[in-house]
Nucleic acid binder design. Sequence first.
DNA 1: AAATCGGGGAG
DNA 2: CTCCCAGATTT
Length: 342
Amino acid sequence: MDAAAVLAWYDRHARDLPWRVSPSDRARGVHADPYRVWLSEVMLQQTTVAAVQKYFLRFTHLWPTVFDLAAAPLDAVLREWAGLGYYARARNLHACAVAVVERHGGIFPQTSEGLQTLPGIGAYTSAAIAAICFDERIAVLDGNLDRVLARYYALDVPVREAKDELRAALQQNVPERSGDFAQAMMDLGATTCAPRAACCLICPLQPDCRAAREGEPVFYPIKPVKAERPVRRGHAFVMTDAGGDVYLQSRPGKGLLGGMTEVPTSDWVSELSEAAYPVVGNWRHRGQVVHVFTHFRLELEVWSSLVPADGLANGWWSPPSALKGEALPTLFRKVLAQAGLG
DNA sequence: AAATCGGGGAG
DNA sequence: CTCCCAGATTT
């Protein structure tokens, strides 16, 4: 693999991103800030660059250093993470910041091995931080690289079945500029070697790419057969008191939407049963909200009612003007909007 | 090894 | 609508 050609391509076509040190600045000796790289990498797990940008800017504005983030309450981190999804990332992010401060004096470990001992930092993220911040000669393998390499080698099995071989092959090609190389390969996958379109004419890997030679590069990577998404159904109950405040409560700390804020709901099951209202009220059906999770589709019937403010114990009452700042995941923002709030 | 865990942007 | 994104953790 022609790593030099990849780096030359990167020197001309690198994306300009808020957490990135440009190749020209890097050549002048500028180093990336491990805190900002770590934060961006966690946000970018299974999440697009477009979705991450505003969250990254908000987080670095509120918490410019790992000390600031470690000192913040978890609740504040969850509120700011609301809408980005995969909320275990936010809990692990905070735990990781605390660990870096308490166990490492606020200095991130400088090796992939050391980084991987921290919460929320796995094989990919540890390698990415070590390469980008410390130029460790390590293979950085994400979804982009899976696709680029599957095409380059015309891999005839799903990537998951050949992950170790791909990593070993990539490791043999990591150049001295390992951080720029990792970011270059990811940019390549995000732009010229995209999932549904491969621009082989401008690709630095084209001369030795087997998929390009075969003529239909988007055939790769081979997709594994995917299971169909089951449907779960339930009821959601939006309660307002005489002052117009909305009743909210916290979800359990682990599991789906763990630690986030919700309105009360029924269980979510395959067969919808009759609504069991949490309190007596003049309940009105406000229609349905559909929300798609990774492994099931959810259909919630939305109900609303004016209720006395003293019949409920576990949660709190929030004025509509404060809903924007609550740790409400997108699902429950849809529910509140369906009930005429937010 | 397989399941769990969000949401949105692109085509 | 489908696909999949700078994956980690739990079972």
